[in-house]
Design a protein around this nucleic acid. Structure first.
Length: 271
DNA sequence: GTGCTTGTTGGCCA
DNA sequence: GTGGCCAACAAGCA
């Protein structure tokens, strides 16, 4: 389920170890896909003895910084099925644990059965490109209505659903958030991005921010979203629209399973 | 057994 | 070069 809010939540789970030096580093098989971009031995050497000093999430990406000045950069992406956990000291790495950092007081675990997640590592005072080149947060000042309008215009023939999934403009928006946004905006997911126009783009911009902010506020240990959200009904058999009660539609749009309300999000007439 | 899956990438084609 | 689409990656679940 890792989208913006879940990633932010995952990041906080590891923050319990802030200030604690790493005593040992366990990685799964060196040829695991998740580790394809790192040298496990070099990472182990650079992290051992270094304390976790800060963490940050940007969209679906996370950076954990270790050591004096935060010069050791550990980047994590959860992929489809990744989870972060903090376990008591003495934790034994289990199947599909891609990375386990032991601090002596607890173990920080990156668990990812499907292996679409990704570990990156960098040593240096400056942020590596995989961190510094990320798109501006949808909750920050760099995410503007004008930027959204220009992006939609450039991808005018692509379905708005597929466009919302593009991390280069909507970092952190994933499949369920895209559907939630379109449902609230009353836009059919197959609508070509270019047909929304300036007003439609501005509305989409507003709703992306609103859904993102609300998702971050609601994420927590009990992790559930309100029953008034499409999210709560999209996977249940015979799910109905929480706003109008109509049976929800489901189809593949933009290459992903997409759920929408045919009454609240009618297909657009061609102009 | 079948047919899905909350993500990303690379390759192909227009 | 840009935009657009899709298969592939892997494991678990119904």
């Amino acid at each position: 389920m890792p989208e913006l809010a879940e990633v932010e939540h995952a990041r906080r789970l590891w923050d319990v170890a802030l200030g604690e030096p790493v005593t040992s580093v366990h990685t799964s098989s060196p040829h695991a896909r998740a580790l394809r971009e790192v040298d496990p031995d070099a990472m182990r050497e650079a992290l051992t003895g270094a304390a976790l000093v800060s963490s940050e999430a940007r969209g679906k990406q996370m950076a954990f910084r270790f050591g004096p000045g935060g010069s050791r950069w550990l980047g994590l992406h959860l992929g489809m099925s990744g989870r972060l956990r903090a376990e008591p000291a003495g934790y034994e790495p289990a199947r599909h644990d891609r990375l386990v950092l032991d601090t002596g007081r607890r173990a920080l675990v990156f668990h990812d059965p499907r292996g679409f997640g990704r570990v990156r590592f960098h040593v240096g005072d400056d942020a590596p490109a995989w961190w510094s080149s990320l798109a501006p947060s949808v909750l920050g000042v760099g995410f503007t209505a004008a930027g959204v309008a220009a992006f939609l215009a450039r991808r005018r023939r692509t379905s708005v659903k597929a466009v919302l999934l593009m991390q280069e403009r909507f970092p952190g928006v994933g499949n369920w958030m895209a559907d939630e946004v379109l449902w609230r905006a009353g836009v059919h997911p197959a609508t070509p991005a270019g047909s929304l126009g300036e007003a439609g783009a501005a509305e989409l911009w507003r709703v992306v921010r609103r859904v993102s902010r609300a998702a971050v506020e609601h994420i927590g240990d009990d992790w559930g979203y309100p029953a008034t959200w499409l999210f709560s009904h999209r996977w249940e058999a015979g799910g109905t629209c929480p706003r109008c009660g109509a049976a929800l539609s489901r189809d593949t749009i933009g290459g992903r399973t997409t759920c929408w309300c045919p009454r609240c999000q009618p297909a657009r007439r061609r102009r």
